[in-house]
Design a protein around this nucleic acid. Structure first.
Lengths: 161, 161
DNA sequence: GTAAGATGGACAATGTGGTTGTCGAAATAG
DNA sequence: CTATTTCGACAACCACATTGTCCATCTTAC
């Protein structure tokens, strides 16, 4: 048996794997009418959910401040992926909702990811891919999805109010 | 047999796995005298290599502009991880080298990563972890390491001069 | 040997994403 | 009815990346 690889290759492989998938996703999304979509957008749209959400809640879901969340909303609104409406029950709240285009982006993303996964299945075999997923699930304990990755990588302290 | 998970969980698992490892690394690094170390720093120090490098070359290795690379060097110099020296053979070049502290950070990181990998080995079994690494190696084809992750996630176009 | 081009490093300006802090309006608790 | 909390907006600031420009220096061609 050969010797184990050094520990530091593991994180590199994981990051590279993530990047490989996301790059492929956006290459295909661009081809399917979403050239302006960026990796973060999927996270935000996912967090918005089917029923809508407020900026504060959104920030809480994503692990960033409400201001940062509001900025994303503004961007995605400009791109036509989100819309905001007043809440009739609470004049303070403005509900952020996905537009048809936003839903389309998510639907296509899901489909494309399924295709990419099928590609991995061809390369690795169904059993080994399932094992890979199961194992990652074990070691990560399925933490919440957070998109404060930029600042996190660079190292700025995160933390809401 | 149960049905396959949707494709979009795969990238999430990979990212979460990466984050899990890196968070654990830096928690331990902070305990071992490197509280200011941040995820990017390891990438930079690794790219600098044992013999030193110029800012332009560094940027090329990392997939960012020379200005961005120079800023990282400036930061790491301030933290005591890097030092710059004039090249006697070429008055234009300034060689960036790791300091003793920089080498120490890398050494400790390698050691800690080994420990984290051992933890995963305990949780998953040696064979399955090896399979996971091998499989990731297959699907990623071992691309170069790039640290333009922040801008990449957000979506800004990358590209040197 | 000198002139033209390429390379390395620094500086300035800009854009984006994030945070803190503050404020006013509206809902809720007492 | 008042006090507290919550939501959204505005302003300022910082970090990191980009492009563009400029100068010094090395290299190459003539």
């Amino acid at each position: 048996m050969s010797t184990d690889p050094p520990g530091f290759v593991l994180p590199l492989l994981l990051l590279q794997g993530f990047r490989t998938l996301v790059d492929a996703l956006h290459a295909e999304l661009a081809r399917q009418g979403h050239p302006d979509a960026r990796p973060v957008h999927g996270f935000v749209l996912q967090a918005v959910g089917p029923v809508g959400i407020t900026a504060v809640e959104l920030g809480r879901h994503l692990g960033v401040t409400k201001q940062a969340a509001a900025k994303h909303v503004e961007t995605l609104e400009r791109l036509g992926y989100l819309e905001r409406a007043a809440d009739p029950a609470d004049a303070r709240r403005k509900i952020v909702r996905r537009t048809g285009r936003g839903a389309d982006l998510l639907a296509r993303s899901a489909e494309i990811f399924d295709g990419l996964r099928a590609g991995w299945e061809d390369a690795l075999g169904a059993d080994r891919l399932r094992a890979l997923e199961d194992d990652l699930h074990v070691v990560t304990r399925g933490g919440p999805l957070r998109l404060d990755v930029p600042g996190w990588l660079a190292g700025g302290g995160a933390g809401d109010h």
